[in-house]
Design a protein around this nucleic acid. Structure first.
Lengths: 350, 350
DNA sequence: CTTAGCACTCACAAGTTGAGAGTGCTAACC
DNA sequence: GGTTAGCACTCTCAACTTGTGAGTGCTAAG
């Protein structure tokens, strides 16, 4: 067993190296001990630790670096237990629960396949409209002439209101009925279709339908968009294979950008929907992509869920191939989607 | 509009640069035209193309490189259409269909959260026993004394057979019944529980139960294990942030290894189940990890699905922190899993 | 319009140098 | 004995220097 002071010194060296990544010299440790030690003393200890195979020098006169044996010793005996803050734990749990709910495995699968297929880094972004924004409405008749006070409770806490003036009066129990209708529709998440349902049931121009129209319009305006965004970046390491990105700083910068939903969203503004979009170098607003091209296409899975999928590569990429592959892929994805909607595919094999 | 020869030269330059990544000099193109041209001619053309802003030199005497404008021109007008081989298309479709079926979003979510949490590259590997291996059985009585010929159809095509000898004879309609039972169980994927069901229904030692036992044993032996493996590598770019991996070749090598299920599987051999395993540098068999540490833990979701999840980082990593985070994460995952099984969590908010 | 030839430019790799960090050793000190 | 100060020594790293080769632009002739 190591004497106490050696242990302490080793531990200090390891931790210093862990956090700084710089080889540790005898002077670096000067301030780190209760009892002040001179650098020479530390040097002596260090050289003994080196003899024991716990420290290593990269060259004769460099600081020392822990050996693998030292790490092992550290892990098994020396290191303190790290205590996670309860805040940290809590955020971890939240994150996990959200992720599990929101993960979009179709798009993930897509981005994996695209990356593998094109041999480039692929990016997929899905934007899902959660649509759970409107919670409840309340309609309050103000007089018999057709003035209404409408309240919309949105997004958990906030409230919007408006006075609605009807051209022809509507009986107050109709108003109650409408309130009920709408709240039920909200609860069941079929608010979008209510409009047409009412128009069909009561006639396009019936006072009731007009009122409903009015109220639904108001609700629509009040909607605060609640989006859920997921981003998949696959095959990041493929980028490194291009000589343009042999500079790690550049590669890291680009990858970080492509891993950030906000940045990607900006990149795909003004995309032609359904076409293969090609953005060459500085055609991408973002300076991080000034030497990269982004070939992508938009894709919408259903009303509430849109996405983009594409690849990033150096401007010197094989555009023809990438374009063809992406196009083929999207058309294939459409087929799959189609089959799924019709409920054909996706059973176990017969 | 560009004269024909200029177009051709530009196109050739772009395509040469796309595939070689080397600035293109006038001599490089010598062999590329039907009508032989001297390098001087090409030089003249190139210098005109440069004046038009389509080519660029990195320095006075280097080859030329297409400008972004040139790429745009190329994409819009010059490039040939790339035609995908039908083989390529087919493999794409297959890949996609498999991926969609096999994606394990829990583990993906987990690996994302872990990467974000620890700020390191995370790796998750899931091994799922598909268990759909046995397709059908057939039992054929050979004589009245209790000899049976059993056929098991496994894994789509292959067949195994065995002669089973019963200690006491079983009536032949019982045998038909058993065949029916088992095939039903196979079809419904509850073969595992059939054993106990029969024992309970017919008595532990009844001839029928004994026969069933025998046949089920045979089936079990015949099982060819069909595994499905999925691997998730998240936060690959985080590795680049460590100075140890500022060398792109090294980083790429490591990432490629960690992205390969086979390699990862080898790494986690002899893992202590349920513990946090720490493999420091060369403790990992694989030389690609000789300067990296792999901290991981095993995790089993249910009978048929096992996985590992962990992080890779340079040997100089904060082991204490990583260990604590991973431990906390796994215990949290267990909770979630638990809740899920009991059917508690995962509703919409109230 | 095309080509051959030549002078010129510049990046890159190899070699050189000096400063700085860190060591090991020795001798003195407690 | 353990600890410290001091000094010579080693080695890396960055800055600078140099020579070579690739590739150009220009000119003059075909």
């Amino acid at each position: 067993m190591l004497p106490n002071r050696k242990q302490l010194i080793l531990k200090t060296i390891i931790e210093s190296y862990i956090s700084s990544a710089e080889p540790v010299g005898s002077k670096t440790l000067l301030g780190s001990f209760d009892k002040p030690l001179s650098s020479a003393t530390i040097r002596n200890e260090m050289s003994e630790l080196e003899e024991m195979g716990l420290l290593e020098k990269q060259h004769v006169s460099s600081g020392r670096v822990p050996s693998n044996t030292a790490y092992r010793l550290y892990v098994d005996h020396l290191m303190d237990q790290y205590r996670m803050a309860s805040l940290e734990l809590e955020s971890m749990r939240k994150e996990m629960e959200n992720k599990m709910r929101d993960m979009d495995s179709l798009l993930l699968a897509a981005s994996r396949v695209v990356s593998k297929l094109t041999d480039h880094t692929s990016v997929a972004l899905s934007t899902k409209n959660l649509g759970e924004d409107v919670r409840k409405i309340e309609l309050i008749p103000m007089d018999s002439a057709g003035m209404l006070y409408a309240l919309v409770l949105i997004c958990e806490k906030s409230v919007r209101n408006r006075v609605i003036k009807l051209s022809s009066p509507v009986p107050s129990d109709n108003i109650h009925a409408l309130t009920g209708f709408i709240n039920m529709a909200i609860a069941e998440g079929r608010l979008d279709r209510l409009n047409t349902v009412i128009a069909q049931s009561f006639g396009e121009n019936s006072p009731f339908a007009v009122l409903a129209q009015e109220v639904l319009g108001f609700i629509n305006e009040s909607r605060c968009e609640r989006f859920n965004v997921e981003l998949y970046l696959e095959g990041a390491s493929k980028l490194l294979q291009n000589r343009e990105y042999h500079d790690v700083r550049k590669a890291g910068e680009l990858l970080d950008h492509m891993a950030d939903p906000g940045s990607v969203r900006e990149l795909v503004q003004n995309a032609l929907p359904g076409k293969i979009n090609i953005r060459i170098g500085p055609e991408n607003e973002d300076p991080a992509l000034s030497e990269a091209s982004f070939v992508f296409t938009t894709y919408s899975f259903d009303q509430n869920s849109r996405g983009i999928i594409g690849i990033v590569a150096p401007t010197r990429m094989d555009y023809a191939k990438a374009k063809a592959q992406l196009a083929a892929f999207v058309s294939m994805l459409n087929d799959i989607q189609h089959k799924k909607e019709k409920g054909i595919g996706e059973r176990n094999e017969p």
